[in-house]
Structure formats: C-alpha cells, structure tokens
C-alpha cells in the first residue's frame, strides 16, 4: 500500500495528463522511489492509477533501463560501459568496483546496500569514465575516487560529483 499523500499526488498527475497513459513513466518512477524497485504490488497499483491492465504496465516497466523490475540495494551504481568511457578506462573501473564491493556486475552487496549495474552512455562522455548514483552524475572516476565515493556512500554522506 502506498501512503495516502502519494496516492493523491499521483492521481493528480494522472488527472492533469493529456491522456492517462502520458503520466505512466512519472507514476512508475514515483512508485519505484517509494518501494525501492517496481514490485508486483507497485505494478498493480500503477495499472489501477493509470486505468491500464498490468500487462500494459509491464510492457513499459520492462522497457526502460532505470526502472527496476527486480529487487535492488538501497543505492544503485550505474557504470557507463559505452564507447567514450570504454576508451578512458571504463572496463578496469568496473572490475575495480566489483572488487571493492565484492559483487559481480548485476548483483547486490550482501548487506543489501549497493547494487552494481552497467548502463549505456550517461551523456557525461567528456568526463569519462562516468557513473550515475541515484540522480547524480559522477565524472573522471579513477579507481581511487571510486573507493572514496563508496566509503562515503556507506557512511550515508554526500559525495562530490566531479574531481
């Protein structure tokens, strides 16, 4: 169940849309923010809010890189593996992240804190290699900076986005 206020806000968003479906991505993102990932329950709630079938919502939910249809940790690190980052050491960085987090790409740390996922170009190619953590873009991430960023994440502290 979602809190009343969130339900009300989402109903408003749907009501203001040109057609109900136009609000679908906003609704999915808000529900994901609430649950941490898009659970089956969230999917059903989205369908109800949008006046769609769960299958229609599933078609959307499985399409986008940043909608999670499986459980993720409290924080998700997206590591860009596209060409500019690749040319600037993106692959060694990803291997380094796997090592310090003790996870394989695509999985979550044992304490459920961090999920490591590869992703397509983040539009930060001039500051390669790039990461996106939460809603923040990080650039010029050296292995040393990666260690510092993760330490700070674990302490729940704000991190610097560029070097």
């Amino acid at each position: 169940m979602i809190p009343e206020q969130l339900a009300y806000d989402l109903q408003q968003r749907v009501k203001d849309a040109v057609t109900h479906r136009e609000a679908a991505i906003d609704v999915l993102k808000e529900l994901q923010r609430h649950y941490g990932w898009l659970t089956d329950e969230a999917l059903a709630e989205a369908a109800q809010l949008l006046g769609l079938s769960t299958l229609q919502v599933e078609e959307l939910a499985t399409f986008y890189e940043m909608i999670y249809r499986r459980p993720v940790g409290r924080t998700v690190i997206h590591a860009c593996d596209s060409i500019s980052c690749w040319s600037m050491g993106g692959e060694p960085l990803l291997r380094h992240l796997e090592k310090i987090l003790e996870v394989e790409t695509g999985s979550t740390t044992a304490d459920n804190a961090i999920t490591l996922l590869p992703c397509s170009c983040l539009g930060n190619c001039g500051d390669a290699p790039a990461l996106m953590i939460g809603e923040h873009l990080y650039g010029r991430v050296t292995p040393e900076r990666a260690v510092a960023i993760i330490e700070q994440l674990r302490l729940g502290m704000p991190t610097k986005t560029t070097s």
Partner: peptide, 8 residues
C-alpha cells in the same frame, strides 16, 4: 533524449 554515446 541524447543517448547516442559520445554525445553530451
């Protein structure tokens, strides 16, 4: 949308 790698 700007998602073509190398474009920012």
């Amino acid at each position: 949308d700007e998602m073509e790698p190398g474009t920012y």
